[in-house]
């Protein structure tokens, strides 16, 4: 009943207008921000060198002691391995830092593009399928430099 009453009032009110005006909320829809080309090929690569060439155009990196990787020697839980990469301030203009777990099925785990004012420091947690090297690749001044650290992954948490 209540619905009908409201409807009556509504119809009366609309008579003067002659037709129902339909409000189109077109302005509410803004195009979704386009993903800034997530490098599918690099992330799906099965080999470290392939991932690097897909991401940077070259697989050649120079070992550098200016890159420090902080990671546990033994990770009891491979699902959560804390990784911190610190780049020495001697290395100017860090453009990007990539974290690679060499023995993962898809080695490239994450890649950080540094914007304005960003320092050469990132810390995150990654998954590791098995024991292997964690490689940090840093791009600065157009050159690729890297360092690595072995992380032993034990399953079952016995610490062995």
């Amino acid at each position: 009943m209540e619905m009908n009453m409201k409807r009556r009032i509504f119809v009366k009110g609309s008579v003067a207008a002659g037709a129902l005006g339909v409000a189109v909320g077109a302005g509410l829809l803004t195009p979704k921000a386009v993903l800034a080309a997530w490098p599918k090929e690099a992330f799906e690569a099965k080999k470290v060198a392939d991932a690097l060439s897909a991401l940077y155009g070259t697989g050649d990196t120079t070992e550098s002691g200016d890159i420090k990787i902080k990671a546990p020697d033994i990770a009891e839980n491979g699902a959560v391995v804390p990784i911190t990469v610190t780049v020495s301030t001697d290395m100017a203009g860090v453009e990007s830092i990539s974290i690679i777990a060499a023995n993962n099925p898809a080695p490239l785990v994450a890649s950080f593009n540094m914007g304005e004012g960003a320092m050469g420091f990132v810390s995150t947690r990654i998954k590791m399928g098995k024991t292997g090297d964690v490689i940090a690749v840093v791009k600065s001044g157009g050159k690729l430099q890297s360092n690595r650290k072995e992380v032993k992954v034990t399953i079952g948490g016995c610490g062995g």
């Binding site: 997530w38 490098p39 992330f43 699902a79 959560v80 391995v81 804390p82 911190t84 777990a101 993962n104 898809a106 490239l108 785990v109 994450a110 890649s111 950080f112 593009n113 960003a118 320092m119 420091f121 990132v122 810390s123 995150t124 947690r125 990654i126 998954k127």
Partner: peptide, 15 residues
């Protein structure tokens, strides 16, 4: 940051 599924559940990120 670009992530793959190799980043742990409930990602932690510091910079």
């Amino acid at each position: 940051a670009l992530f793959s599924g190799g980043v742990s559940k409930n990602p932690y990120l510091s910079f």
